[in-house]
Design a protein around this nucleic acid. Structure first.
Lengths: 342, 342
DNA sequence: TTGTACGCGTTATCAG
DNA sequence: CTGATAACGCGTACAA
């Protein structure tokens, strides 16, 4: 029944003006007389006109849309960030296309998004990207419409919003050592980018080194940020003939999975073993025992990254120097770490 | 440096054919000769051509993009669903725009998305929508490019993917009653749509009624699906002069928040109080005590809803009868509910 | 201040 | 099988 959508021509006819005038009345109201503006806006509402974004994008060579890429949106860490990104972007009139777990050749995929002019820029939370290929993504003026916001990809040429994970991990492990622990393990997530070592592992090693403690390879478990991988680490832990007294899990989800397996096996935290996480997801304060962890300001990260990207897109100037934003982290002491028993 | 993107005309020139032929070689390869197809595809890769989606959308009157609307993507329940939606949509070549916590007049907002031809259809997980307004969203052929997938909005005219929440809640509360509980409370989330009563509350009441148990109003707490609201309910619970022996929380997050407050106050679950949740989010099996709850197949819901929408969009026929899909739920018995103490 | 006319990049139609 | 051409709906020189 509602036939076709009204176009700018329908509005023009209704208001007895040209299409150019309608367009002006809509995008630059001050360049049109009061009377005309009135008539146009009346015609807009009486026809129910909505501007066609495809046509507008084509003409303007801009989609007013950004892409946000995640390695795994199912992780609550990212979903809070997405929440903030959506808020900030929609507040500024941008649509947000979400890309998740890009397949093989993810960089190619993202390039397509950009070059097909579906999106004007992107915020990347996925570290498994080819930075050289990424550099082919440029605005007509030669700017990089990209912001990297995750724990990998420290390409000096890119804009980024990345907390100082190394230092945060260092301080977290120092805290454990300060509690009296000397036998400390770690659940580590190998970087997808083979050239990179994970900053959290680096921080762990640095703290151990400065206290002259040995990093025992059999106490380094591998995970992938999922609950399941934390559970797997828990089983591996239980098989250990000689166990550490504390474990630093690379994120909260792995810590929670790890703890749940230990609890079932009768290992009580923090009495028998201290466990700390990383990120401070919402639920971290509610589990038993409440998790000692490092807070990353997730909403802030999402907001900053989005704002940076949109500023790049909307600024006129060259903006050659990459932004490097470092959101603050904070040690959150709760109940899951305590001095080692004897 | 990379000047402007190559267009179909550049490819045509390079391959010594017309733009029409290039277009055909790309979209309907079988309608051009082998030799031409070869030359075109060579020209495509040598120019680095990528089809311009804005132009394509304009011409085709279709964006190959869908919108997915959530009340709160920060909730892990939804983020798993989003994961599945993205997977299914991108597999079929659709982009996904995410809308979250739409402001006032959310329906208007969604209509704009559609009418501006930014999106061809939408999957709605948000119950606070005006179904009458929603009905103005139609494809040119008069079909509804909408799928509602949440616990509200049971508009008979709309396609939907909704579990039978009432029955699931009924069985969950029956289980509690079977354990011996007679004094049962509920953390309830009021429907945003005033015409609707929440199905989970209905199931709760039905179970109580069939066992001739009294629903005590002071044992009905109000929440909003957030951890914080579960914590608030916990404090309200602690203030109660006369307490129930079991509480059915409207979702897992509220159950977890609720439990964490009780634990701090020395109320031990399930010894002093049984608590059950709803949804079976990933973390439910890891908390202490592991949560007894009802599983909703979240990935399945996301996948089904997306598939239904894309089928509607791509089918030729009229498809007048609304799809009504009812994903199965399952009672998941863990540790947080036990017979009442005496 | 307003109108005319063209082009953004693609695809469908219609001839050849 | 292929080419010329006309839309799709909007923004913007340029002219009035």
């Amino acid at each position: 029944m509602p036939g076709k959508s009204p176009t700018i021509r329908d509005v023009a006819r209704r208001a007895n003006v040209s299409t150019a005038t309608v367009s002006r009345a809509l995008s630059t109201p001050h360049r049109v007389s009061d009377a005309t503006r009135e008539r146009v806006s009346a015609a807009v509402s009486s026809t129910g006109f909505t501007i066609n974004q495809a046509a507008r994008s084509l003409r303007l060579q801009a989609a007013r849309t950004i892409v946000i890429a995640f390695p795994n949106i199912g992780n609550p860490f990212y979903s809070t960030i997405l929440d903030a990104v959506l808020d900030e972007a929609s507040r500024r009139g941008y649509g947000v296309l979400v890309a998740n777990r890009l397949g093989d050749n993810p960089t190619q995929w993202l390039k397509e998004y950009f070059r097909s002019s579906r999106a004007d820029g992107m915020v990347l939370f996925d570290g498994s990207l080819d930075t050289d290929q990424l550099h082919e993504i440029r605005t007509p003026e030669g700017k990089f419409p990209l912001v990297v916001a995750c724990d990998e990809l420290p390409d000096p040429r890119l804009h980024s919003v990345i907390a100082d994970n190394r230092t945060a991990a260092l301080e977290l492990v120092r805290y454990l050592i300060g509690l009296g622990h000397r036998r400390i393990g770690h659940i580590h997530v190998p970087s997808k980018n083979p050239a990179l070592a994970s900053d959290r592992l680096l921080g762990f090693k640095a703290a151990m080194a400065e206290a002259r403690l040995t990093v025992r390879p059999e106490w380094i478990f591998e995970g992938d940020f999922s609950i399941a991988s934390g559970e797997a680490a828990g089983h591996a832990f239980l098989d250990l003939p000689d166990r550490p007294t504390a474990v630093f899990a690379g994120n909260d989800e792995m810590a929670i999975g790890f703890l749940s397996v230990l609890r079932r096996a009768g290992v009580e935290c923090p009495r028998d073993l201290s466990v700390v996480g990383f990120d401070d997801i919402d639920i971290a304060r509610c589990v038993t025992p409440a998790l000692t962890t490092v807070r990353q300001p997730r909403a802030e990260i999402g907001r900053l990254a989005t704002r940076a990207l949109l500023d790049i897109l909307e600024s006129e100037g060259p903006c050659r120097t990459p932004l490097k934003l470092v959101p603050p982290t904070e040690l959150v002491i709760r109940e899951s770490a305590a001095p080692p028993g004897r």
